[in-house]
Design a protein around this nucleic acid. Structure first.
Lengths: 334, 334
DNA sequence: CTGTTAGCGCATTCAC
DNA sequence: GTGAATGCGCTAACAG
């Protein structure tokens, strides 16, 4: 448990070669291309290796081959429930592709994100940037050094997967209109967020189409607290329903409303976005389902293509969304 | 954007040396120990490096030094809100220590956890296992190959940080007793979980001490749904208050109760554990605060000590907990 | 202060 | 089918 250097003391390819009575090259082949060797030799090497507890040194292998099968996924905030399903989707695909996933969390700050990418760049074969807060120039700069795939960020020329909430948001406005609501609110998310801009536009278009009055209420951050604090303004606006930037904000709305004894959905309707809370709210939240796990999977597949093909293509992958009606929406109050 | 091999084509130390008109060793030192060189030389090298876009190759450096500053953190489930704060705590400390954090999520299965540890082992200098679902033998086996630090798993001989919920749970029972509750329930978590065993015991001791009737209700998994489904049994038991294994389960309880129009805390009191939901429930959840961010920080410090000192010690670090009273607990109904 | 000499552990040309 | 060289890019003695 106390070697000179970490990694030292572990059996090397040479020791295995000696025990097995073969050359180092043969040991190497036994692990990388067994079919090049006779079955006998392979067995002999494997036995020797096991007896020594030998396992190929990934670092040395990487230096020699130039590949190590590591990739990085950087998110603004691990604690935001939007990301875990996405992370899990990516993990699953990474396992299938034999890749190791490193995770970074930038705490929503561009500086930290920048630092993380730089730190990872030398150790991974590719990076997935989720909801990047970096400006386009910096993203491009990083992409020039290491293959990059974007999620929810639309930078032409780079492979990117976009969760197209426009359709789902449209359906949400339709749903509200059908229920008789004539005045609704959109509670915004981070201004720098591509998703927020997209959703905001979709709400506006839908409202115009139905001739519904729209009030836009800013929530500083996409957070529970921001949603909760915006409730007074929400009530003051005179609207009877709200669409929130995301589920977490919507949950804040729900709690803020409950605190004021305003029943949902009898007196007010609330719709979220992302579908990451499931039915864990009360009442269960009507929301736009985003399939974020699929986004993670797709991004990973894209990245492993880029790595395998050794070249970036200009791919823009749009994922569909749909409205999931649960219990937080109802007919407009008289 | 299309090299023969990834990593190839990037400027190497030799090219920088040539441009700067110095030896490769000098370039190396300019990056690792600038104070060993004259300011002039350092500047000259840095300039040359920048002009070439050179950045030290981590993999090569690692092969040479035997260290690469990578560590892994493996959790049962990224999507469980207990872990993100812990992950974030570890990340922060990792940055301070100049370490890179890899994340693994085992989906609660020992097999996947086993595989992850094995896959990471060759690429990291240490592993943090959070709430490991592995049996002691396997943990020990891994610890023999790579430095391991445990969180919420009490394996003698290995460095471990334990969130000692016993004290907080005790306070929770006291709180309930003071409010006049004479019959309470404990809703369990995963049987294999060290935390669950600890919490269960603490509830039992507290109940006995106050002469309170205790019913233990099993929730298969620690999940929202499990909590929600256990509500009928909860009501049938005749208890007036419940302590849940964790906040997520408690939230399930809250929703299940609300669905049956049983007001909290007027007719029933609920207490959670971990304090990861904050005030995002309605009513805001009374819970045992676990300081999980601190657990992540402490584990990381422990691990970096182990790495630096090149040897494991038998450290058992217990983190205190306390009861946070919010709105989900009240006087026992008549 | 700086250059020279040797590897780190492995995969890969070539020969045989 | 297998072995003998060579190098991946860098750091670590050891000189000077």
């Amino acid at each position: 448990m106390s070697d000179e250097k970490p990694g030292r003391g572990l059996p090397t390819i040479s020791q295995v070669a000696e025990v097995a009575g073969v050359s180092r090259a043969t040991v190497s082949r036994a692990f990388t291309r067994p079919q090049m060797l006779s079955a006998d030799t392979v067995a002999k090497v494997k036995t020797a290796a096991k007896s020594l507890g030998y396992v190929p040194n990934q670092v040395a292998r990487a230096l020699s081959t130039g590949r190590h099968g590591n990739i990085a996924l950087i998110v603004p905030d691990v604690a935001n429930p939007f990301f875990p399903p996405l992370i899990r989707g990516a993990q699953g695909r990474a396992d299938l592709a034999g890749l190791c996933l490193f995770l970074g969390s930038s705490d929503e700050t561009p500086e930290r994100e920048d630092m993380l990418v730089a730190k990872f760049a030398g150790q991974v074969e590719g990076v997935i940037l989720v909801s990047s807060r970096l400006d386009e120039d910096r993203i491009r700069a990083h992409a020039a050094r290491v293959p990059v795939v974007l999620i929810n960020r639309d930078v032409p020329g780079l492979p990117r997967v976009l969760i197209d909430t426009a359709s789902g948001i449209g359906a949400a406005v339709d749903h509200l209109a059908a229920l008789g609501h004539r005045h609704i609110c959109y509670v915004t998310g981070p201004a720098a967020s591509w998703s927020n801009q997209q959703r905001r536009r979709a709400v506006r278009n839908g409202a115009r189409h139905h001739g519904i009055t729209l009030t836009t209420l800013p929530a500083q951050r996409a957070s529970f607290e921001a949603g909760r604090e915006v409730v007074p303004a929400l009530i003051a606006s005179g609207a009877t329903a709200a669409i929130a930037f995301d589920d977490v904000t919507a949950q804040g709305l729900l709690v803020g409303l409950a605190e004021r004894k305003i029943n949902v959905p009898e007196r007010f309707s609330v719709i979220g976005c992302d579908d990451v809370l499931g039915a864990t709210t009360f009442p269960p939240l009507t929301t736009v389902s985003a399939h974020c796990d699929e986004a993670g999977e797709t991004a990973l597949d894209l990245l492993s293509d880029v790595i395998r093909l050794r070249g970036t293509r200009d791919i823009r992958y749009a994922l569909d969304t749909e409205l999931v009606v649960r219990g937080s929406t109802g007919p407009a109050p008289k």
